[in-house]
């Protein structure tokens, strides 16, 4: 099967366009963040929560007037600078557009090469970036008032740059002899779960920054503009409990693939070890959240270490210590 070079070129152009879109989104999100309202860590408001009162309109049977009860951590929003908000909207729109273009780039790449677009580090990194952005959009579209897009776009753009400028290779066929459907399932789920967990890790990093601010006021204005701890914790946790089972599944399919390709389902090669370490760290994260004295910042640290191990596994191990998983192929 020949490579469709014109389609491959289109894919590369779309990739560039997506990166450009993300850069614009980054700038807008930076404005959005810097003009975001500050959120005090307000203790009294938590105490007030119990006072919500329902009343009946008295005629229809027990129909309530709108509930006024607030749940924990909801803080009444002070006025927000409208132009910051506007930049936030632009950031969101441009991110969505960039994301769609990015997905287009991945799809055309796969069509050009006549296979799943997950055959080398460039293609990998591209999908992971798209997943991080996708996870972010998913969260942002549900919770509009989260001015943290800039912290998502910075790592994404760095990775996009590395992918486009350093890792990029021309679309090419892989050794079809090595194809196995387990491989595709494995590589796809690894990329998706890594992206999701990376996003979760970013939320944990922000959690720690916010926590520092609440403890010492160390990061000053910056920390004050971050979302509340409970929000960041919830984002990190909810994405982690999505990413972790997916990652578990990816590791299992990796083992299934290893069984048909190398004759053993697990052999402790460097990549397998790293996947195991990552897995154990996220198990540790979930445990930490259930252990007295470990909730909060300590658990967030574990999640950040998990993030480091994912990045380490994807980049350092792939490029520096290639084991059987290297793309060198079979001789």
């Amino acid at each position: 099967m020949a490579i469709d070079t014109s389609l491959a070129t289109i894919s590369d152009q779309l990739f560039g366009a997506a990166a450009a879109g993300y850069t614009v989104a980054l700038i807008c999100a930076a404005v959005e963040f810097s003009s975001a309202r500050t959120r005090k860590a307000n203790v009294e408001e938590r105490e007030l929560v119990s006072a919500g009162v329902f009343t009946s309109d008295g005629t229809s049977s027990g129909r309530p007037i709108v509930p006024t009860a607030q749940s924990i951590g909801h803080v009444t929003a002070p006025e927000k600078a409208p132009w910051g908000e506007r930049f936030g909207h632009i950031a969101l729109i441009v991110t969505v557009l960039g994301f769609l273009v990015h997905v287009g780039s991945i799809v055309t790449r796969g069509m050009a090469a006549g296979r799943m677009p997950l055959g080398n580090m460039y293609e990998f990194t591209s999908l992971i970036c798209a997943t991080v952005v996708g996870a972010w959009l998913f969260v942002k579209l549900r919770q509009k008032s989260l001015p943290i897009g800039v912290f998502v776009m910075v790592p994404v753009i760095i990775l996009m740059y590395i992918a486009g400028a350093i890792l990029h290779t021309e679309a090419a066929e892989l050794q079809p002899a090595l194809n196995s459907y387990w491989k595709w399932i494995h590589v796809t789920t690894v990329s998706l779960s890594s992206g999701i967990l990376m996003f979760s890790g970013i939320a944990s990093v922000l959690y720690l920054a916010r926590n520092r601010y609440e403890r010492k006021g160390a990061t000053g204005k910056f920390g004050a503009k971050l979302p509340e701890l409970a929000t960041l914790d919830r984002i990190a946790y909810r994405t982690a409990i999505l990413g972790f089972p997916l990652f578990t599944f990816a590791v299992i399919t990796g083992a299934l693939w290893a069984e048909v390709a190398w004759g053993r389902y697990w052999g402790w090669d460097p990549k397998e070890i790293c996947a195991f370490v990552t897995w154990v760290l996220y198990a540790g994260y979930l445990h930490a959240r259930a252990t007295a004295g470990w909730r909060g910042p300590k658990a967030a640290w574990v999640s950040v270490v998990g993030l480091v191990s994912i990045v380490f596994n994807l980049f350092f191990i792939n490029i520096v210590i290639a084991g059987l998983h290297s793309y060198a192929g079979l001789n």
């Binding site: 402790w268 460097p270 990549k271 070890i273 790293c274 195991f276 370490v277 154990v280 760290l281 198990a283 540790g284 445990h287 930490a288 252990t291 470990w294 574990v302 191990s309 191990i317 210590i321």
Partner: peptide, 15 residues
């Protein structure tokens, strides 16, 4: 929890 972290740490030299 400690043992989990220890397990992760102890695996690293293997990689």
């Amino acid at each position: 929890l400690m043992l989990l972290f220890l397990l992760a740490l102890a695996s690293l030299p293997g990689a």
